[in-house]
Design a protein around this nucleic acid. Structure first.
Lengths: 345, 345
DNA sequence: ACGATTGCTGCAATCGTGTGCAAATCTAAG
DNA sequence: CTTAGATTTGCACACGATTGCAGCAATCGT
């Protein structure tokens, strides 16, 4: 290896024959430093590959230009898409992002928040947090803005971004009703919190419009929003005396697992049973059969979340919605091949 | 909001009636502090929600417990899976990760490296970097270990993790040959660098075993490894006078785009043409038809990369391979439904 | 009872940067 | 040539933590 001596502002000052204060000002284009001195110092800085220590700067200025992000799972196609948009906006404004996953573990989520706060992030972005605002008090007075995106706890929170889940599943249910389905099930998510409640309610809404109800036997619950939960749903579904002709899942991942399990049990989709998801993850269009679902703009959600955070930090951002206290995004129905009229029998 | 006054070590010292040095030692379980004093201070720290400033600690100790990671695209299913494993290992050792994407832009990649170094990460992990080692000199003497994973530049680098690409495509090609295919194409990647060369070579190897060659007309090149490149390949393929009966793509994303384009052009897969990918991204099994591909252990790759970095930093890690200078991972052939014997005609 | 040892705590310097204020230099006018 | 004013630079402290060293009190040995 070569000499790992990092060149500091003092070293630079020594070589330039000025004090380190002058160097600091020169590099930050402070007006009170002579133009030629500044140019000379900047030139020297380039030659020596000087990189200012963001750490020291953060310590001094109390601003790190770092966003802390906590999601459920990075590898989840939904979140990875969101993170892409988020990081991209952050980059443009010169921010970096800590990304961490709590993997369905509230303990870990709290831990991660502590860590990120200790690292002095300028803002905290919590996706699908299961935290009731009350538990946040465990962290003391929060020194930075905290944004909740798709919050699952049922509190009303100051800065948050929601998605119109209820009208989403309502649209999906109407679509199925229009196809002629009358026996429609909903596959819930125990850990879904508010998201689960809203999505379930949308189904109930649409059924009620036709004077129908969601029978308890069709009001299902899976342990989470991952693929394996789809298999759990399939089991419950196959055990029913009178099987539904259609099912709306909590999200696409669940639907994916469900379709796979149903297909390997010999059922044909959509001929024997229609399946719908929620989110429209990028692969939804490429499944077999391609998945009818409700589209959430994921990349855009990430961009918006980043902008909302940056706005709170006084940065200029293009999207005017970033200034809102509570943002609600609208999605749209994506009809594909996993839904069709119910079987004749 | 409540008072955003962050409680510092001095404040804590004042309230406890000791000096801040004692507080520091008490919190770090330094042996030379009286047990009861330590207990009292720790108790107080908890009550006041004291969080030590990682920034200050980093400045003083010159260790941040942060890994800097640069990938091509976060939203790419391959990388998001890798990042999941990586972050998970990092978390267990108390490390945080900066994750950033250079989106196929070398300029941006260099920029990100600068930023992460300025932020004093303890190690830098570069995935699919296009950097020749020479260009790294632009950054001066690197003060931290840099690991290259799936490096695309053709230099030999000190710390790196590779995948056995060549034997991967060789296995895929043999599989197709065994099915009876003789007209086999390869869909390359202009920006694939070393990865592209190796994968292409594997195809050539297997063909040569039977005394065959890869004809120039079947030696294709797409602009990158994303879906849209699959469409480009499809166009080239359909324009050929004598169409190949099978094609091996640079990676799964390309294969995905290709299949879609071919199908919407009326071709049936695998009846009319067999398609194979590379990587085995999680959705490969759920495509229609499910994709024959070469499996790379993505989550494990992320875990291993993190461990290799942590090992360089003197941390204890479970996987002994982490100590190797150069690690090569082996994959395995995944035969699914996108490949079949060639059409009779 | 007295010096030596041990155990605990505080002082002060340091990491690399930013910044208020004083000091030094320069410019130009009287 | 003197001096006021403008311009440029340096001194010194601060941010929040870690750590070598010195100091002080308590305990021990003889």
């Amino acid at each position: 290896m070569s000499a790992p001596k990092t060149v500091t502002i003092k070293e630079l000052a020594r070589r330039a024959g000025v004090s380190h204060s002058t160097v600091s000002r020169a590099l930050n284009n402070h007006p009170s430093v002579a133009a030629e001195t500044a140019a000379r110092i900047q030139q020297l800085a380039r030659e020596l590959h000087y990189v200012p220590s963001a750490t020291a700067r953060t310590l001094k200025t109390n601003r790190s230009r770092v966003l802390g992000v906590i999601v459920n799972r990075i590898a989840d196609p939904f979140y990875s898409e969101v993170l892409g948009g988020l990081q991209s906006v952050a980059y443009r404004s010169g921010y970096s992002v800590f990304i961490s996953a709590f993997e369905y573990d509230p303990e870990r989520e709290l831990n991660l928040m502590r860590t990120l706060l200790a690292r002095q992030v300028d803002a905290l972005l919590l996706f699908s947090s299961t935290f009731p605002a009350r538990r946040l008090e465990q962290l003391g007075a929060l020194p930075v803005p905290v944004l909740f995106i798709h919050n699952r706890a049922t509190d009303v929170l100051p800065h948050s971004i929601y998605h119109n889940d209820r009208s989403g599943t309502r649209a999906l249910t109407r679509h199925l009703l229009a196809l002629g389905h009358r026996r429609i099930a909903y596959g819930g998510n125990v850990r879904g919190g508010l998201l689960h409640q809203q999505r379930r309610q949308g189904v109930v809404d649409a059924l009620e419009e036709l004077g129908l109800a969601l029978p308890p036997a069709y009001d299902l619950l899976a342990p989470d929003g991952q693929m394996r939960s789809g298999a759990v749903l399939a089991e419950q579904l196959l055990a029913l005396a009178e099987r539904p002709t259609a099912i709306i899942c909590f999200n696409d991942m669940q639907a994916l697992g469900l379709m796979q399990a149903l297909q390997s049990a010999g059922l044909r989709i959509p001929d024997d049973i229609s399946v719908a998801g929620f989110d429209d993850i990028p692969l939804a269009a490429f499944l077999y059969p391609s998945l009818t679902t409700y589209h959430q703009p994921q990349w855009e959600l990430g961009e918006l979340a980043a902008q909302a955070a940056l706005f709170r930090l006084g940065e200029a951002v293009p999207d005017p919605r970033a200034a809102f206290d509570v943002i609600t995004l609208e999605g749209r129905l994506m009809v594909r091949n996993s839904t069709a009229p119910p079987p004749r029998s």
